[in-house]
């Protein structure tokens, strides 16, 4: 029967697991992004090396994917603000 970890060790392990989860999420993002960008960029037959255009497509794919998420977040945020503003105007009138 093993004893429980003391408090300091429990804290350390919690911190460790949070860090590992963060890495795991990053890995998962890279996996799904690789899959999506592969489908978009590697459309021809594969050979012993990437064509220059395929390589730059992959790099651009990651950049534009992140731009897209930022764009969507900003858009939703501005819509949310517009709704909040109009409802507070309604209350004032």
């Amino acid at each position: 029967m093993t004893e429980k970890f003391d408090e300091a060790t429990q804290k350390e392990l919690t911190q460790f697991l949070l860090e590992e989860q963060k890495k795991e999420r990053l890995q998962a993002s890279v996996h799904s992004l690789t899959s999506a960008c592969w489908d978009k960029c590697v459309t021809g037959s594969v050979s012993s090396r990437f064509a220059r255009s395929e390589e730059s497509c992959l790099v651009n794919c990651v950049g534009r994917f992140l731009d897209t998420s930022l764009h969507i977040v900003n858009r939703i945020e501005s819509q949310r603000r517009a709704v909040a503003e109009s409802s507070s105007n309604g209350l004032n009138a």
Partner: peptide, 11 residues
């Protein structure tokens, strides 16, 4: 290779 390119660019 694609995984490495994506990983590097993303990070």
């Amino acid at each position: 290779e694609a995984f490495n390119i994506v990983s590097r660019t993303y990070v």
